[in-house]
Amino acid sequence: MAEETRTAPDRASHAALDRERLRGLLAEILDVDVAQISDQAHFVDDLGVDSLMALEITVRLEAEFPVKLAEEELTQLATLDDTYALLDAKLRAAS
């Protein structure tokens, strides 16, 4: 069953941030092998991420983690390292 608006996971059920889980999630969203998502692989230059895939990343991250991502923050997300750092900072700020 596809994720539904009305059954978006509640905040308490979110899993903790884990680098390998994040790597797996990005690989799934971008439909590439996990090995291609190196810490420094550039989403646009190396992985061919376009604006639609970028939105897909955002929607999935917001569904998986208790964060909201602003449009200008998205443009800063170029690698797994960047994504991990931003999520980590946001989750720490919220806790």
Binding site: M1, A2, E3, E4, D31, L52, E56, V59
Partner: peptide
Amino acid sequence: AHLFNVNAASDRGRTRL
């Protein structure tokens, strides 16, 4: 009424929906 937050343009989204 049911709204789904899914990328309707992706094969994965469509085949799940």
